[in-house]
């Protein structure tokens, strides 16, 4: 279970460029650190983040261990039609987390 925070407008006018902000709880473990026992902590990262809206991918990110723990992204999309915006994170071992935000376009 991961805690996810999303900041997005509930309503927008057609054609308006809206800001989307997402924050997810994840260590983004690099694989280069040692734990208290002196042993290397295994790499554990989110590899992709994808946003679909109105049936299309509108934003995608391929991530490396250089992204800080508890990744945060701020990006933009143009409001076209009312519908769900789906945010989906996929980890290196295939596990995924997603969250949906409903946008109403007036």
């Amino acid at each position: 279970m991961a805690t996810i925070r999303i900041a997005a407008p509930d309503t927008a006018s057609a054609g308006e460029v809206i800001e989307l902000k997402v924050l997810i709880q994840h260590p983004m473990e690099t694989g280069y650190r040692s734990g208290p026992d002196g042993k290397r902590i295994e790499r554990d990262i989110i590899e992709t983040f994808e946003v679909t809206y109105d049936g299309e991918t509108v934003f995608e990110a391929d991530l490396q261990p250089g992204i800080a723990a508890n990744p945060i992204f701020t990006f933009y999309t143009r409001a076209t039609t009312s519908g769900p915006i789906v945010f989906k994170w996929t980890g290196q071992d295939g596990e995924s987390w997603s969250e949906t935000h409903d946008l109403t376009v007036e």
């Binding site: 805690t3 925070r5 900041a7 902000k21 924050l23 997810i24 709880q25 723990a69 508890n70 945060i72």
Partner: peptide
């Protein structure tokens, strides 16, 4: 109050 990662724990 959005980006402060401490809020991930507070939400939980």
């Amino acid at each position: 109050n959005f980006a402060n990662p401490g809020f991930l724990w507070i939400d939980r």
